[in-house]
Amino acid sequence: MRIEGEYTFSGTREDVWEIVRDPEILSTALPGTQKFEQVGENEYEGRMNVRIGPVSGTFGGKLTVSNEIPPESYTLTVEGTGKVGFLKGTGDVELLDQGDGTTLMKYDGEVQIGGRVASVGQRLFDTVSKSMIKQGLEKLDEALQARSSDAD
């Protein structure tokens, strides 16, 4: 399943980069996150509660960041498993300086799902994933603005 989209942050590319690479902020951004810890230089482990239509459950998983070109782009790899199935995905994230103090984030990735989330949640997976990503990015944007207003 393909997941792609874009989001405009109201901040510079450098500031956005800092935010999206800050595990503490990330841990608060994604809805349902119960735990999010850095376990290696570019590796994080976490647990997250997800509800997709009739299916809900906790996914435990790993997030790896690679191909980093600060502050332009990186690749995210996610692997999660839980009682209700599994999820695996890789996506490229690109940050584009818009020249007006905002930054455009483009993301494009492929996700594989299996188990109960796939067999009965598939129909809603697209909508749920989009709304989760949107919520997460909005949270990050809020954090970005909070940070810049702190700095002011």
């Binding site: 399943m1 594989q112 796939a118 009965v120």
Partner: peptide, 14 residues
């Protein structure tokens, strides 16, 4: 079935 062999409509709702 998706390309990974996952059945995507395994309920009478789908």
């Amino acid at each position: 079935f998706d390309e990974n062999g996952q059945l995507l409509n395994a309920s009478l709702a789908d």
